[in-house]
Amino acid sequence: MSSIDLVVTAEDEQPAPVRRSTTGGRGSRGPHSRGARARITRVLLYALLFLFALWYLTPIYVLLVTSMKGSSDITPDKMWMLPTSINLGSFASAWAKLSPNFINSLVLAVPAAILSSMVGSLNGYVLAKWKFRGADTVFTLILFGMFIPYQAILIPLTQIMSNIGLYGSLQGLMLVHIIYGIPITTLIFRNYYAAIPTELLEAAKVDGAGFIRVYRSILLPLSASGFVVVLIWQFNSVWNDFLFAVTLIPNQANWPVTVALNNLSGSMITDWNVQMAGALIAALPTLLIFIILGRYFVRGLLAGSLKG
């Protein structure tokens, strides 16, 4: 871990241990020295935080309670009430409808994330450590690709995908995600590798290591947390994508779960509890990743904001 922490580029969201000790001291001293006013500020502070926390959690509350209700409980006027009895049938119904699409999303997002991060890692390595003339301009031009509204490429993309016979297939969608993931994955890895001291590489080069060996023996072993960050980022964006999927996948059997969920909620005879259960199912993988690997998720957010 310690070797990885050396090269973290994005700010570690944990406060540094040194700072924590000083803050701990101040925190314990505060209430006594500043008295009642400080205490009121403190209460206000927590009150505000709780209020915001309530706001952030409201949709989760609605999702959870609604999805556990039976069909007699789901009229709109009972939206805020707890279920009269726990009924998990809605999950079964939602799963029955969404499971093929859920599996599609997995089949799509896992390889797409892995391939994307490999591509990004190699690109980042070249752009950080093997700069060619104009490399920074090329990098900026690549970056532009992550900001464009995809509508601006959607029509010809549809044409190309059908010309190469990948229209409507998950492989085609995967390819699209990998291509349009190049800017962000390259960005994250480039910034990540830029923080690795070039002396380290020079030393290896003096010892006779070439492009590939430097990558394999120095960069790659230090890349673990970078890969985790990019894998999470790409998995999330592929899993949560709607626009590419709804345009490039016309057949329901190949839909990823976002498109299926939107359709489930737009269809005529679907009960709210089933829709909410479906929404929970669709959100589960990315939420689980967030809960387990939140640290890296946050790092990806920071890295994605260019300056890192």
């Binding site: 549809t158 059908s162 409507g168």
Partner: peptide
């Protein structure tokens, strides 16, 4: 191969894309 969605609007767009794609 049913495609759900409001009065077929999703199905229609999806179909048009398939016909356009020649499949």
């Amino acid at each position: 191969s049913a495609i759900a969605g409001g009065a077929g609007s999703n199905a229609q767009a999806a179909l048009q894309n398939r016909v356009l794609a020649g499949t």
